[in-house]
Design a protein around this nucleic acid. Structure first.
Lengths: 110, 110
DNA sequence: ATTTTATATCGTAATATTGCAATATAAAAA
DNA sequence: TTTTTATATTGCAATATTACGATATAAAAT
């Protein structure tokens, strides 16, 4: 018990859940927004930007990277992080599906 | 420790995180997809559709409802659940922001 | 009135997440 | 080569999530 029963769901469902879960933390939202704001892939001053310790931010970055939402490359001493389009495109597919439904849905039952 | 430090983030960031977190489970993805498929707000046969126990599904429905992603109304004996446009519109705002950035982003640093 | 049907809640065990101090690693600067 | 700078990893405590059996609730059917 306590573990998500991923084996009962499709790969696509599990992947979408993983992506959403990775976004589901305010610090990780803040990281994504910061990466958008600074555009030019500025690296670890995210630590200065956010009110969390360096190890905690490192962990959040790792989760975003594992989910495929950001990429990180060594840039000399430091690491340059930026958004990974691939991950966000998968999310887009899902929400396109949802939004298309919602736009065409006429019955107002609830 | 162990608790998310929501007080350090904006309301919008926290709300977006809550929405994403609610979507971040394959069973809840499956519920959303099922509600889209059956359109007409068919209620608790979600329990027959998914390989999880009734209490577990009830709990997942509650989380989606609390996050503002689905609505539920009594329909005689049973409850009629359907998607809540409001919640998904908030998500749309966030991803529009992200996608606009990604489309215009030209620098390929990572 | 009793039973059935549909759903929610409680209690609890297993596991996962969050956050940080301490420490490791590894490249750059001195 | 030593020190500094940037980042990752480890270990651990606090808390949250997931799942389900048992039980509660409440309307519908009998």
């Amino acid at each position: 018990m306590g573990t998500t029963k991923t084996e009962h769901f499709t790969d696509v469902q599990n992947e979408m859940a993983t992506l959403a879960k990775a976004i589901g933390h305010p610090a990780r939202i803040a990281i994504i927004e910061y990466l958008i704001k600074v555009d030019s892939c500025i690296c670890g001053d995210i630590v200065n930007e956010l009110p969390l310790s360096q190890p905690t931010i490192s962990q959040h970055l790792k989760e975003l990277k594992n989910a495929g939402l950001i990429k990180g490359n060594f840039e000399g001493n430091a690491i340059c992080y930026c958004l990974n389009e691939e991950g966000f495109n998968k999310i887009k597919l899902f929400f396109n599906h949802v939004n298309t439904y919602l736009e065409n849905k006429k019955n107002e039952c609830c």
